[in-house]
């Protein structure tokens, strides 16, 4: 058995990178805007299908297709914010209500994709190459996925730690009232947070679309894994989603060594429950300040 271990670890890293990509935008919005945005799954789905539409159906070159998909996805997430979330914030809706509305947006987008593209699965066939390292093999796209998750993680780190915008986001996350008092406009920062989440989500969507099949509801399981990754990594930290994603990916792959592969979701969900019960602050263990 040990001979396939390296391959399993690589597969786990690939799956984990996909979860981390999905989780990054989700946890950025949770960090700044303070609600669980299911619609991040919608952005992933929309971007994947747009890339399929431009690249595979219309035959536009893939770089331009990717760019167009990213731009339209950003517009999509901004309109969700403008039409739905901003109005909910105006009437001071709770984060549960906002979360439910994001679930409705996810279902809406999946249904829209279903109505336009039909229920059959789609594949994007792009140039791909397999590298054989003897003890394991990996494709070019898989390598790109692993590298992108690291790259986007670094990008997020730079934005949050090194820019004025990042400082504003962190102060807003820490204490909204205090941030407003020192001249930060929350709505403006939220808009930027959604734009970044849109970029993260659409790049994830395109990469996931290259690696897996496309189907209208693909965003749902992906965003659930994104949520699990965020919690396991530590939901009060944006970087937690990356750590959690890789961790979940690895444990799932190693777990289905022992269990039928259909039980993959059961494994990650069990880990989620264990963390929620025994280590609710996640691997990185960043604690939310006590309000009392």
């Amino acid at each position: 058995m040990p001979s396939i271990l390296p391959q399993l670890i690589i597969n786990g890293l690939i799956a984990g990178s996909i979860y981390a990509l999905a989780a990054s935008g989700f946890s950025l919005v949770y960090y700044v805007v303070k609600f669980m945005n299911f619609a991040q799954g919608a952005i992933i789905t929309i971007a994947a299908y747009l890339f399929f539409l431009f690249g595979s159906v219309l035959g536009i070159n893939y770089a331009l297709s990717a760019l167009l998909s990213i731009i339209i996805s950003i517009l999509a997430i901004l309109s969700m914010n403008l039409i739905v979330y901003e109005n909910l914030r105006k009437r001071k809706a709770t984060n549960v209500v906002t979360m439910i509305s994001s679930l409705a947006l996810l279902i809406f987008s999946s249904a829209l994709v279903l109505a336009i593209f039909g229920s059959s699965t789609k594949t994007i066939s792009l140039y791909n190459k397999t590298f054989d390292f003897g003890i394991f093999t990996v494709t070019l796209i898989q390598l790109i996925i692993i590298c992108s998750s690291v790259f986007l993680f670094l990008l997020l780190w730079v934005v949050l730690k090194k820019t004025r915008l990042g400082k504003a986001m962190r102060s807003l996350s820490d204490n909204k009232e205090a941030a407003q008092v020192i001249g930060i406009n929350p709505e403006k920062i939220y808009t930027y947070a959604f734009i970044i989440a849109g970029i993260l989500g659409s790049i994830s969507g395109i990469l996931i679309g290259l690696e897996q099949n496309l189907y209208p509801r693909m965003g749902v399981p992906i965003i659930i894994k994104g949520f699990i990754s965020s919690v396991v990594g530590g939901i009060n930290s944006v970087y937690g989603s990356i750590v959690g994603g890789l961790f979940i990916g690895l444990v799932e792959i190693l777990g289905i060594w022992f269990l039928p592969s259909g039980y993959r979701d059961v494994i990650s969900f069990s880990i989620l429950l264990l963390f929620l019960l025994f280590k609710p602050n996640g691997i990185l263990g960043v604690k939310k300040r006590d309000d009392s």
């Binding site: 739905v84 109005n87 909910l88 009437r91 809706a93 709770t94 549960v96 209500v97 439910i100 509305s101 409705a104 947006l105 279902i107 809406f108 999946s110 249904a111 829209l112 279903l114 109505a115």
Partner: peptide, 29 residues
């Protein structure tokens, strides 16, 4: 089916924005 889902999702969002207590609701969540 898809159209129905879209209508329900839109109705849900509209209620949450404009009339969170629905027709007979007594509490907010």
């Amino acid at each position: 089916g898809a159209f129905r889902e879209m209508v329900f999702a839109v109705v849900l969002i509209l209620i949450l924005i404009f009339r969170p207590r629905g027709m007979f609701g007594k509490v907010d969540i």
